[in-house]
Design a protein around this nucleic acid. Structure first.
Lengths: 334, 334
DNA sequence: AAAGCCGATGTAAAGGATTACATTACTCGA
DNA sequence: TCGAGTAATGTAATCCTTTACATCGGCTTT
């Protein structure tokens, strides 16, 4: 029932607990025969150091918390994978938290930092949890907190992201280059800075071609359903091109377009965002903005680890490249 | 820099550490004025109990580990959500681990149990991590380990799952009822018991209709790409109905069917499995077997919590109902 | 052969919270 | 008024590891 402790191991091996500890964490400081004897006992008892005791003593949990607003979105899964790999290399484990866009759950997870359950936090949402405010104002850029994907200049947290304005611009330029003039946009919620940035980029591109006032802007919430709901309006507005701020919304929109008796891309071209793994298997293959998902996670961890190591980190904003991937959901007009 | 401890709080409030501790965990055992005074100090210092110390003392981490073979699969996201809700109700937090189907990563996560970082483990794969063997043979059904989705009778772990054989049977009966006689199946890897069960069910249905030897069986790995790779062969074999053991594979297959110049469901009907959130937005809407994803997670947690509470748990296998959801990827033959 | 060094190991003090048990100061009943 | 009972709080042991410092032979050096 009760698991063996270092004391029992020490007793059985006829050494002190210090030696057992050394065998496990600094093997080279123990004489060969002693080490082998201890290891044998460790093995036979199935001894595993109690992590709580170790953390308490070393003041290091060797864990990084990554919170995502929606774990069911495969986009975040790729970011998490990148983070996990980088974390492993740096000697950290990753704990994943799904906040479901709920501020109170975000706060709950952020509390793991205050209670020292984790050494650092990477949050992929746009909102700095309330209970981190004191920490940020006290420690500033030395606080072990990094923001990924999103970027809110006002919260003063180092972050890793793409140039969302440029990406929004690229998407619109693509539709315009295909001859589309009546273009719809389904954004994310207004509170999301990345949504604002993408929209700003899109509007800038539209303006450049004198199409600013023909842009039909609808507010979604990144979910397929939310996009589908806007499609009847968009069709009534006569759009021939549509830019959705997530692939899920693009899929929802395409589904609704068909439901309305139209066809994508023949009647309406659709551009998505994220390049989910399924984007290329969707019907039609999704034209979309690819984000370097794995890299975002990886860089976020590296930034965080630098902070944890106490390097004064001059780098606090990292912008990674995006890419327009053209498949078959967009087509020349006419 | 260094965070406040209970000792500092006690000193500032002019009480003992015991009182501070009681204020935080048994408020009713402390006199009102004292409690308020302590709370004030706690607030002003931003004190948060050190979780490592608490865990060490109470021998309870208040955490449950849920490992999934592939975090980018939205199916598991739903299971995790269900688990999180049930865990929260029972006073536990959920830690999510992505094993990527890698046994060594599975072992790594399982080690969190041995080192008492978590109180219990729910694993959604099919393989009992090696380093849990001793635990299982020592504690048997009292070990805080539960298996979800999959079910391997031989490993002796309580589990929560659907009746995969019956589900496989349902899927095939549906295709047969639509007039299909040349039916293909894309399974999961053979090591996966759920794949074996689904296949057994499918074959049973085929046999019942004298179609056993016309079944074309291909082995996939649940990924869209793996299914797409088999489609040319299936077409060459002249199948008109296809049963894929995951929605991702169904989507991959449908995409490849189109690539090959055929149309689903006109030329080939496809049945998926899982009913992912995107299944209804796919083109065509996916006919699929819906699993009660949230319930699986929830029941798994409840089972685990029972074990942790020390109730002798007579229940060790829970079978939940599945459902055939008919959309537009299947159609009457001819 | 004395002094100094070194490698191997032991001793014991943290680390921060919880809680059984002890103490204190009242209140109440007889 | 005394003893019992009770509510509020304090004391100190405990959870298990890690690690600075102490100790102890034995070896080298002069």
């Amino acid at each position: 029932m009760s698991m063996p402790t270092i004391i029992q191991v020490a007793a059985m091996a006829g050494v002190s607990t210090a030696t057992v500890s050394r065998v496990l964490s600094h093997p080279d400081r123990v004489a060969e025969p002693t080490r082998l004897r201890v290891l044998e006992v460790v093995e036979s008892l199935g001894y595993k150091p109690n992590v709580a005791a170790r953390t308490l003593r070393t003041l290091r949990a060797a864990k990084i918390l990554v919170t995502v607003p929606d774990i069911s979105n495969p986009f975040f899964a790729s970011v998490i994978r990148g983070a996990e790999e980088a974390a492993r290399d740096a000697g950290y484990a990753v704990v994943v938290g799904d906040t479901r866009h709920d501020p109170s759950i975000e706060d709950q997870y952020a509390a793991m930092l205050s209670s020292r359950e984790v050494d650092g936090l990477i949050f992929l949402g746009h909102r700095l949890p309330d209970n981190l405010r004191p920490l940020m104002s006290k420690q500033g850029a030395h606080a072990p907190v990094v923001n990924g994907c999103e970027y809110s200049p006002d919260i003063g947290v180092p972050s890793v992201h793409i140039d969302n304005a440029a990406a929004g611009c690229d998407a619109l330029e693509h539709l315009i280059a295909l001859g589309h003039r009546d273009i719809g946009v389904i954004t994310g919620p207004h509170v999301s800075p990345i949504s604002r940035d993408r929209l700003a980029g899109a509007m800038q591109a539209a303006e450049r071609h004198g199409l600013a006032d023909r842009l039909r802007i609808h507010v979604g919430d990144y979910s397929a359903q939310s996009a589908a709901d806007h499609v009847p309006d968009l069709i009534a507005q006569g759009v021939t091109g549509l830019f959705c701020f997530s692939d899920e919304m693009a899929m929802g929109a395409i589904s609704a377009i068909r439901q309305a008796g139209r066809i994508c891309p023949d009647d309406i071209s659709v551009v998505g965002f994220d390049d989910l793994p399924l984007a290329r298997f969707f019907q039609p293959g999704l034209t979309t903005i690819a984000q370097p998902k794995g890299h975002i996670g990886q860089q976020a961890v590296e930034l965080l680890v630098d902070i944890l190591r106490g390097d004064d980190s001059p780098v606090s904003q990292i912008t990674l490249p995006h890419e327009l991937v053209i498949r078959s959901s967009t087509k020349r007009l006419g």
